[in-house]
Amino acid sequence: LRCFGESRRGASGLEFYHPEYEFLDGAEAVALDDRLTPVYPATEGLTQQRIRALASQALTFLDRHPLTELLPDDLRRELDQVPLADALRYLHAPPRQADVARLMDGTHPYQQRLAFEELLAHHLSLLVLRQQTQAEGAPSLAPDPALHKQFLSQLPFQLTGAQQRVSREIAEDLVKPIPMLRLVQGDVGSGKTLVAALAALTAVASGYQAAIMAPTEILAEQHRNNFGGWLEPLGIELGWLTGRLTAARRREQLARLASGEARVVVGTHALFQEEVEFANLGLVIIDEQHRFG
Results as ranks from 00 to 15, higher is better:
128 V>S: 11
15 E>A: 13
283 L>Y: 07
178 I>A: 13
189 G>Y: 12
166 V>H: 02
249 R>W: 00
177 P>K: 04
174 L>P: 02
147 L>Q: 15
49 Q>I: 00
223 H>G: 04
232 E>K: 08
192 K>Q: 07
72 P>I: 04
37 T>R: 11
175 V>G: 02
17 Y>N: 03
279 A>P: 01
21 Y>R: 12
202 T>Y: 01
41 P>D: 10
20 E>F: 01
3 C>M: 05
49 Q>D: 07
80 D>G: 07
51 I>M: 13
152 L>R: 12
262 A>I: 00
230 W>Q: 03
163 Q>D: 06
250 R>Q: 08
185 Q>Y: 02
178 I>S: 12
265 V>M: 08
135 A>Q: 14
31 A>D: 13
143 P>I: 10
172 E>T: 08
261 E>T: 12
218 I>N: 00
108 H>S: 03
222 Q>W: 05
222 Q>C: 06
228 G>A: 05
20 E>S: 07
137 G>T: 11
69 E>M: 05
161 G>A: 15
203 A>E: 10
161 G>V: 03
188 V>Y: 08
222 Q>D: 06
276 V>R: 02
141 L>Q: 04
50 R>P: 00
115 A>I: 14
33 D>H: 01
152 L>W: 06
274 E>M: 02
41 P>S: 08
210 A>S: 10
207 G>Q: 05
135 A>W: 04
179 P>L: 06
88 L>F: 07
78 E>L: 14
223 H>Q: 11
169 E>M: 04
103 L>Q: 01
4 F>P: 00
157 F>D: 08
156 P>E: 02
166 V>Y: 05
70 L>F: 05
222 Q>H: 06
77 R>C: 10
163 Q>R: 04
119 L>T: 14
82 V>K: 12
166 V>P: 00
176 K>L: 13
79 L>T: 06
127 L>Q: 15
220 A>Q: 05
203 A>T: 04
29 A>V: 13
43 T>M: 12
75 L>R: 13
44 E>H: 10
31 A>M: 04
103 L>G: 10
122 H>A: 15
83 P>F: 11
203 A>L: 10
198 L>D: 09
81 Q>S: 05
67 L>N: 10
255 A>M: 11
209 Q>D: 02
17 Y>L: 14
8 R>I: 12
231 L>P: 03
146 A>C: 00
79 L>W: 15
216 T>D: 08
138 A>V: 09
291 R>I: 05
44 E>Q: 08
255 A>H: 10
119 L>Y: 09
240 W>S: 05
226 N>G: 01
108 H>D: 15
107 T>L: 02
81 Q>K: 14
224 R>S: 05
191 G>K: 12
97 Q>A: 14
145 P>G: 11
237 E>D: 09
38 P>Q: 07
258 A>R: 07
5 G>T: 10
192 K>T: 07
107 T>H: 01
81 Q>L: 15
215 P>T: 10
269 H>V: 11
131 Q>F: 03
150 Q>R: 15
293 G>K: 09
169 E>D: 15
226 N>R: 14
14 L>D: 13
22 E>H: 07
13 G>W: 06
108 H>Q: 03
105 D>Y: 01
81 Q>D: 09
98 A>P: 06
256 R>G: 03
165 R>E: 13
168 R>L: 08
226 N>A: 15
219 L>V: 11
133 T>S: 13
217 E>S: 02
276 V>S: 08
85 A>K: 13
139 P>V: 00
177 P>R: 10
287 D>H: 02
278 F>C: 09
154 Q>A: 15
271 L>P: 02
172 E>K: 08
174 L>G: 03
65 H>M: 08
40 Y>I: 09
